[in-house]
Structure formats: C-alpha cells, structure tokens
Design a protein around this nucleic acid. Sequence first.
DNA 1: AAATCAGATAAGTGTGTGCTTATGTATCGT
DNA 2: ACGATACATAAGCACACACTTATCTGATTT
Lengths: 104, 104
Amino acid sequence: MLEQDIFKALADPTRRAIFEKLAAGGMNASALREGMAISQPAMSQHLAVLRTAKLVREERQGRFVNYEVDPDGLALIAQWLAKYRAYWPARIDALKDLLRDMDQ
Amino acid sequence: MLEQDIFKALADPTRRAIFEKLAAGGMNASALREGMAISQPAMSQHLAVLRTAKLVREERQGRFVNYEVDPDGLALIAQWLAKYRAYWPARIDALKDLLRDMDQ
DNA sequence: AAATCAGATAAGTGTGTGCTTATGTATCGT
DNA sequence: ACGATACATAAGCACACACTTATCTGATTT
C-alpha cells in the first residue's frame, strides 16, 4: 500500500467513478458495470488496481465477488494530506462545517 | 482546478517530491532542482502540471520565479476525502482531529 | 547594446497505461 | 458430469506521459 499506488489509482476517472459507486454500498463486479459502458475485463483490471492501492477490498461469495471500500487507502490519503495542514486555507471552514454536520 | 488534474499531478513521484520540497518553504525553480537529478525543462514541465492542478502557484520576482504551495489544490483533496468520511477508520480520523485543533 | 541568466516552450522518443479480444479458472444449476 | 455464470488473466494495440535536446522569451548586468 504505497502512496504511489493510491494516487495512480485515483488518477483515472473511471476508477474514481467505480470507487464512488462502491462508497454508496458494496456490490459485485457485475453490478458495478451496470450503467457504466465498460467491458468485463476492463472492470476486472480497474478493480485489481484499486485493490492493490487498498482503496477497495474483495470478499468472495460463491461465484460472485463482493467489493467494498477499504478504509486503509483513505487513511493513507488523510495522512498524506495531514502533512500539509499548515497550508490549508482558512476558508476550509466549509469542510469543518461539513464534518460537523456529519456528526449529527 | 479539476480532481482529474490534482490526482494526475500527484501520481508522479517526482512531482510529489517537488511539492513536498515546496511545502517546507517557497523557492525558485533552480533552487528546487538542487539535489534532485532533474533537467531544467523537466522541472519546468512538472511545475506547469502542478500549477494547472492548483497545487502550486508562481510569483515572478525579477528574472526568478518563486514557487510556493497553493492551498486551493489541497482544499480540493480535503473535500474529496470528506465525501468518504464514513469509511475513515476511527483510530486514524486525523483530519477531523486536526480540524478541531485549528479551531483553538 | 550585447552577453548572460532564469525559465518556458517545442519537437521527438521510449515507456506506461487503458482498452480490446481471447482464453482460463471457479462456482453454480440441472 | 455438463453447461452456464462470474470473474481473472493473457496478449496486443493505440495513446498518454515523462524525459531528452534544442530553441525561445524575458529580465539583469556590464
């Protein structure tokens, strides 16, 4: 789980879309493809990249493979970002508000 | 300033190194090259990519161009990350803690 | 004005990446 | 056991990307 893998994985818009879809709830690879205009091998390859980056993890269920968000990858981004907290703008208040709202 | 630009910019290890160097304090392109085994055009091209991503901003000073971290790009990453807050592991909820610290 | 210096831009090249088609590997249903 | 289903892997191809050398722009110095 390297920074390198994470940022490279997220550099592709299709993979970000897949990740975002999974963030709304785990599902198998076929379900992920629905409404996405992407071939089965392409999806499988993208999921492999996301897995390597620890952004996603799999769990085999019979002949399906259920995928879900892996917090490890996100944690690494948070850590990377934290290194530069000195530069976060004051108007990041929006983010603070967002986090406060999510606490309710 | 698109997500696309940010993640692509950070997907390159040399650019992350440049960014990290600038995070320690602004400096011009020549100073950035010191100890980095990178040609002048390559540095210029990397800086252009970081600029497009709003991760870095320039300020011309005579015949030098001083570069420094641009908070805008970092803010965008923070916002992207915040969308997936539900998945952050409790023990590494660093971003939230840091934001709390900033409230003091 | 001319030479110099900091940096940007242009054009070409090798490598990486995301796709495709084809095939392989498990698991399920009958 | 057999075919079907869900997914992974292999191999090839077109394009993107990071580098190179060469040149250009703009500011400084003498």
